[in-house]
Simulated scan of single mutants.
Amino acid sequence: MIAGVIAVVLLLAVAAYACGGGTDYGAGFWDLTAGGAERGERSRRLIDHAMAPVWEVNNVWLIFVLVIMWTGFPVFFQRVFTAMWLPLALAAVGTVLRGAGFALRKPLTRLAGRRLYGAMFAVSSLLTPFFLGAAAGGVASGRVTARATASTDAWSNPTSLLFGFLAVAFTALLGAVFLAADARRFAVPDLDGHFRRRALAALAAVVVLAVITLVVTHGDAPHVWHGLIHGVGLVFVIVSALATLATAWSLTRPSGAWSRGAAVAVVASAVIAWGMAQRPYLIPVSLTVAEGAGAHTTLRWLGLVTLVAVVLVFPAVVLLYWLDTHGELESLTDAELRPGRPGDEV
C-alpha cells in the first residue's frame, strides 16, 4: 500500500518538474529561435526577466524526483540509470551548461561572451528535455529490463525518440504561453502576439506528436498503449485533450485569461496519463511497483519526509510562483522592452 502511495508521489513530482522546469526549458527554446542579437534582443530581455526569480527553484522538483527514485525504488533507479545512462548523462551535462549559460550571459558586457553563453543556454534548453524524454520513452517501452546493459543505443527506438520530441514540444508550449502572459502584463502587445503565435504553433506540434506517439506505442509499447485508451489513463488523456482546446481558445482571446493554467493542465495531465497507463508497473512489463520498492521502513520515513516537504516547502514554492506571475518580484520597465532602447548592442 505505502509503495503505491510513494509511486503516486513520484509521478506527481515528475509532472511538477515537467511543468515548472519545462516552462524554463521552453523559454530557452524561444531564446534559441529569437534571431540575431538585434532582432532577438527584446525577446531575450523578457526571457531573462521571466526566468530569473524561479529557474533555480524549478530544479527542486528534479532533485525531489531523484531522491524518491533512489530511496524509494532503488531497483528501478538502478535499471533506469544503467540502460539509459547515455541520454541521462547528456541531460545532466545539459542541465549544468544551461544553468551556467543563463547565469553568466547577463552580467557580461562584451557581445562575444554574451553570445557564447547565450548559445550554451539556448542549445542546452533544447537538448536537455529531449534526452530526458528519450529516457522516459525507454521506460515506457519496457526496454529498461533486468537484462539491459549499459549500451549507448538503448534509447534509439521509436517510443524514446517520440517522447523526446514530445518533451521539447511541451516545453515550447509552456514557455511561449508564460512569456505571452508576461508580455501582456508589461503592456507590450507586439511581444504578446509574437509569443501567442508561437504558443499556438507549439500546441499544434504537441497534438500531432501526441497522435503519432499513440499510434507508435500500439506496436512498440503495447502495455502503455492499452493503458492510455482504458481506465484512469484514458481519463487523463481526455483531460489533456480538453485542456488543449481550452489553451487554444484562451490564446485566441484578447485577454489571454487562463492560458497558463490550461497549458499546465495539458502537460501535467499527459504525464499523469503516462504514469497511470503503466500501472501496476514501474517498467512495463518487467518490474511492478511492489517489486521495485525499497524496504518498508525506508518507505515509511520517505513518506514522512514527503509530508514535511508538502507542509513546509510546497506553500513557499506556490507563493514564489504566484509572486512571480503577478509581477511582485523583480521590476522591469517598459523602456527595456520598447524598440530602439538607447544603448542596445548589435
Rank of each mutant, 00 (worst) to 15 (best):
I2R: 06
V14H: 04
V14Y: 07
A15L: 09
A18W: 06
A18F: 07
C19G: 10
G22P: 04
G26L: 05
A27Y: 11
F29T: 14
W30E: 13
W30G: 00
A37S: 14
R39S: 12
R45V: 15
D48V: 14
H49Q: 06
A50P: 01
V54C: 04
E56W: 09
V57Y: 02
V57C: 14
I63H: 04
I63R: 03
I68C: 11
G72D: 08
V75E: 15
R79T: 15
A83L: 12
A89W: 14
A89E: 07
V93L: 14
V93R: 01
V96H: 03
L97K: 01
A100G: 15
G101C: 10
A103T: 13
R105D: 08
A112M: 06
G113W: 07
L116Y: 08
A119Y: 05
M120G: 14
F121P: 00
A122T: 02
T128H: 02
G133I: 11
A135Q: 08
A140D: 14
T145Q: 10
T145G: 12
T149R: 10
N157D: 09
G164Q: 05
A172P: 01
G175K: 10
V177D: 02
R184N: 04
R185L: 09
R185M: 10
D190L: 11
R196L: 01
R197N: 13
A199T: 02
A199F: 01
A202I: 00
A205R: 04
V208Q: 01
V208H: 00
T217A: 06
G219F: 10
H226M: 01
L228C: 00
I229A: 00
H230L: 04
H230V: 11
G231P: 11
G233Y: 01
F236Y: 08
F236V: 00
V237Y: 00
I238H: 01
S240W: 01
A246E: 07
T247E: 00
T247P: 00
P254C: 03
A257C: 00
W258H: 15
R260E: 10
R260N: 13
G261Y: 08
G261R: 05
V264E: 03
A265C: 13
A268C: 12
S269M: 03
A270H: 03
A270E: 05
V271C: 04
I272W: 07
R279E: 15
L282C: 08
P284Q: 02
P284W: 00
S286L: 07
V289F: 07
A290Y: 08
G292W: 01
T298S: 11
W301L: 14
G303P: 10
L307D: 05
V311S: 09
L312P: 06
L312R: 03
F314I: 15
F314T: 15
A316Y: 05
Y321D: 05
G327W: 08
L329Q: 10
E330M: 13
S331I: 12
D334T: 15
A335Q: 11
E336T: 15
R338V: 09
R338Q: 11
G340H: 08
G343A: 10
G343Q: 09
G343R: 05
G343E: 08
